[in-house]
Deep mutational scan, measured.
Amino acid sequence: MDALKSAGRALIRSPSLAKQSWGGGGRHRKLPENWTDTRETLLEGMLFSLKYLGMTLVEQPKGEELSAAAIKRIVATAKASGKKLQKVTLKVSPRGIILTDNLTNQLIENVSIYRISYCTADKMHDKVFAYIAQSQHNQSLECHAFLCTKRKMAQAVTLTVAQAFKVAFEFWQVSKEEKEKRDKASQEGGDVLGARQDCTPPLKSLVATGNLLDLEETAKAPLSTVSANTTNMDEVPRPQALSGSSVVWELDDGLDEAFSRLAQSRTNPQVLDTGLTAQDMHYAQCLSPVDWDKPDSSGTEQDDLFSF
């Protein structure tokens, strides 16, 4: 819950932080000083300027060897085509990944977070970031790969997607708890209302004896509580940590079903599988986004697919 609360507080303090972009060759504004600060901008989305290598189908939802083989196929196909790589912007948030063309600003792909089953910074092609997700059109699994400016960037994108998945799962947990509370309150309110109706004398007997209905007592009954809980029953509950912020979080049926399955089948359902080692994760978390744009010590960066 700490990640969720800190993310909400950060967004309320400075929503404009989320509009910064990394990996864009110096076009961005001043960047936060450390990885923790940038992680807090996830709610509205972190932007990464990358190059799209392509996509291939895979048979399993996750796995280092599986993704490595898929990336190898994608890279080989991209090299064989001889075409310049498409420059894209990857927007990562707890909602998922939005992929747009840098030149036309046209939407290429919009992947809900619950469809993503794996992401990684490839070991062999260490400047490549990739994720595996279920197609929104059918049940097939797709591996999408992107060329980053350097290994640090690939690791940073991988960690960002993993963190977005974690925050999304926490949102789901909060929403589920809130819905259970509202359902319980609604049920209790309905029981109270039913009890009051059972003990209320029939209207005919009131008229016969000349008694008047006590409207004041009726007004004191917990009807307002019942209506408050039943009027918006169809509205999706939102985490309290975000009250007053500009973010509107809505959970669709697909996300609810997917996270429910994860909660039942996995020990740590909030953790998205990645190909990063503990050492890689520690190294990337210690980086400032400013470091992502620094040239690798191995030599001059080449803006070309064939540089790796």
Rank of each mutant, 00 (worst) to 15 (best):
21 S>N: 15
189 G>R: 05
50 L>W: 00
233 M>L: 09
262 L>M: 03
185 A>Q: 07
199 C>K: 09
71 I>Q: 00
24 G>M: 11
244 G>E: 08
231 T>R: 02
287 L>W: 10
128 V>N: 01
111 V>Y: 13
113 I>D: 03
306 F>V: 00
100 T>Q: 09
152 K>V: 14
175 S>N: 04
301 E>S: 04
11 L>E: 06
165 F>P: 01
115 R>A: 04
46 M>Q: 05
246 S>V: 13
10 A>L: 08
240 Q>D: 05
188 E>K: 03
95 R>K: 03
168 A>C: 09
162 A>V: 01
292 W>S: 14
271 V>F: 07
88 V>L: 07
92 V>R: 00
265 S>F: 02
22 W>T: 01
207 V>K: 11
227 S>P: 11
49 S>I: 11
200 T>A: 11
125 H>I: 00
252 D>K: 08
168 A>E: 04
70 A>V: 02
102 N>Q: 01
97 I>Y: 01
146 F>A: 00
41 T>L: 06
151 R>G: 02
280 D>G: 07
171 F>P: 04
209 T>K: 12
278 A>M: 09
64 E>H: 15
16 S>I: 10
143 C>S: 01
264 Q>G: 05
55 M>H: 07
158 T>Q: 02
107 L>F: 11
177 E>F: 09
125 H>T: 00
49 S>P: 09
211 N>I: 05
129 F>A: 05
218 T>M: 09
172 W>I: 02
119 C>L: 03
10 A>H: 03
307 S>G: 01
5 K>D: 06
82 G>K: 00
11 L>G: 15
100 T>A: 08
267 T>S: 07
194 G>W: 02
228 A>I: 11
300 T>S: 13
153 M>S: 13
21 S>V: 07
192 V>Y: 02
26 G>Q: 14
245 S>Q: 09
202 P>S: 10
133 A>R: 09
287 L>T: 06
23 G>L: 06
24 G>W: 11
307 S>T: 14
247 V>W: 09
211 N>V: 04
80 A>K: 06
158 T>R: 03
200 T>P: 13
9 R>M: 04
130 A>F: 00
72 K>I: 05
26 G>E: 08
167 V>E: 15
49 S>M: 13
105 N>F: 14
286 C>D: 14
279 Q>T: 08
95 R>E: 02
215 L>C: 05
235 E>K: 07
157 V>Q: 00
96 G>A: 08
256 D>I: 02
116 I>N: 00
3 A>L: 10
118 Y>T: 03
241 A>W: 11
130 A>H: 00
90 L>F: 08
51 K>T: 00
8 G>M: 00
163 Q>W: 10
212 L>Y: 11
83 K>P: 04
46 M>D: 11
207 V>H: 02
132 I>R: 00
218 T>Y: 02
255 L>Y: 04
262 L>C: 03
91 K>Y: 06
94 P>F: 05
231 T>N: 06
101 D>N: 10
34 N>P: 05
112 S>K: 01
69 A>R: 13
252 D>R: 03
102 N>L: 15
254 G>A: 11
159 L>Y: 11
117 S>A: 14
261 R>V: 04
181 K>N: 15
270 Q>C: 01
191 D>W: 11
54 G>F: 01
7 A>M: 08
11 L>W: 05
188 E>W: 01
267 T>E: 07
169 F>R: 02
222 P>S: 15
124 M>D: 05
61 P>W: 13
248 V>D: 09
145 A>I: 01
277 T>N: 02
85 L>T: 00
113 I>H: 03
125 H>V: 00
305 L>T: 11
68 A>S: 08
15 P>M: 07
306 F>Q: 15
4 L>M: 14
32 P>R: 15
228 A>R: 14
4 L>D: 03
273 D>P: 06
288 S>M: 08
56 T>H: 01
26 G>A: 15
120 T>N: 12
219 A>L: 02
238 R>T: 06
198 D>W: 03
34 N>Q: 11
66 L>C: 08
171 F>L: 10
135 S>Y: 10
100 T>R: 06
209 T>H: 09
294 K>W: 09
136 Q>K: 14
41 T>I: 11
141 L>N: 15
225 T>W: 04
179 K>H: 11
256 D>E: 05
173 Q>L: 13
199 C>S: 12
92 V>T: 10
69 A>E: 14
297 S>C: 08
230 T>R: 06
269 P>D: 03
